[in-house]
């Protein structure tokens, strides 16, 4: 097991190097002279040369890559062209918001999707089954941004129950500790802030969680159907265990393996969805940051964001693989 994890970690190295090459080529291929972008239109030739020398822009491409990679490894992603702020700081400020959104939407997706799949499977071919699967099919065909707008329209505009965007009511005093706003408002005992933060979280989390929910419901159902046909389930029913115990305690547990895989596999979808959801709800997260910096052609920021996204994605895939072997020890990991 230990060796398996080490081996998988080593395998990540070429992938991560590849990711940095792609990210670097992006800045390199991007139209425009980086020195001029940094200094603006009125820079003199001498200033341009100084900047080129300072950042190694007059060196061959591979040397530039080396310089840049060295910086990245030391946590130096450069400065944003627009705000002149360190890219690392910009990302660190937005990062917790995206994580909170992702966690909230996954909690929703896993509980509701898992439950729907189990109920569907244990009542196969019933009206409930057809309804749940119909909704799930609809769910995977829906654009997340449209769903976001519809939720906003219904719960924000028409019913007026929930705010239609932002992270917190700006009139509420809030003390930033870790950046995770739900967590921060709990540890500072700020009940008003907590309420406001949660209210702002509901709609984006529902929008982002619906597609994973639909996928999880479909996979849970088919996996449950397979487990329910097995002998040990028949034995349990024969020995008189209640249907509840059979389904929730024994069958569901055995049906979870494909579900874990599918959650891991669809994490990319969640990140893509976060970009769109954050745009719809003006959510100050990484997804919004990447889109804004693409608009502004703020390449250091774009590159910083995509590196972070890609690295998160790669590690989640790794964790999924490792979890997989934990849940089902029969899987060989040589």
């Amino acid at each position: 097991m230990k060796w398996y994890i080490i081996k998988r970690l080593l395998q990540l190295i070429p992938v991560i190097i590849g990711v940095t090459i792609i990210a670097f080529s992006l800045i390199h291929l991007a139209p425009g002279d980086p020195a001029r972008t940094m200094l603006g239109q009125h820079a003199t030739q001498q200033e341009l040369n100084e900047i080129r020398e300072k950042y190694g822009l007059d060196e061959p491409v591979y040397v530039q890559y080396g310089i840049w990679l060295n910086g990245v490894l030391h946590g130096d992603f450069g400065r944003s062209i627009l705000t002149k702020e360190l890219v690392v700081n910009e990302i660190a400020e937005r990062f917790p918001n995206t994580i909170e959104l992702a966690i909230a939407s996954m909690i929703f997706a896993i509980t509701i999707g898992g439950l729907a799949g189990i109920i569907s499977a244990s009542n196969q071919y019933s009206i409930t089954d057809y309804t749940v699967m119909g909704i799930a099919l609809f769910g995977i065909s829906m654009p997340v941004f449209w769903l976001g707008i519809m939720l906003m329209l219904i719960f924000g505009v028409i019913l007026g129950w929930l705010p239609i965007g932002g992270r917190i009511d700006l009139l509420i005093p809030f003390q930033r500790v870790t950046g995770f706003m739900v967590f921060d408002s709990i540890i500072t005992g700020n009940l008003n802030a907590l309420l406001s933060v949660l209210k702002h979280l509901i709609l984006p989390a529902l929008a982002l969680g619906t597609i994973p929910m639909a996928i999880i419901a479909r996979v849970t159902r088919s996996s449950m159907l397979e487990v329910l046909r097995q002998d040990f389930i028949r034995t349990e029913r024969a020995k008189g265990l209640s249907e509840r115990v059979v389904i929730y305690r024994h069958a569901a547990r055995n049906a979870m393996l494909p579900v874990v895989t599918v959650i891991g596999l669809n994490f990319g979808l969640l990140l893509s969805g976060a970009i769109l959801t954050e745009t719809v709800f003006s959510w100050p997260g990484l997804g919004r940051l990447v889109v804004e910096s693409v608009y502004e052609r703020d390449y250091p920021l774009v590159v910083g964001c995509i590196l972070i996204f890609a690295i998160i994605f790669v590690f989640v895939n790794l964790i999924t693989d490792i979890l997989y072997t934990f849940i089902d020890p029969r899987i060989k990991y040589e």
Partner: peptide, 21 residues
Amino acid sequence: RIVDIIFSFPALLLAIVIVAT
């Protein structure tokens, strides 16, 4: 391995990156 590397980007993000370039 090259395919693996392209796979390390969420699809929409990579599309955004390409469009940005």
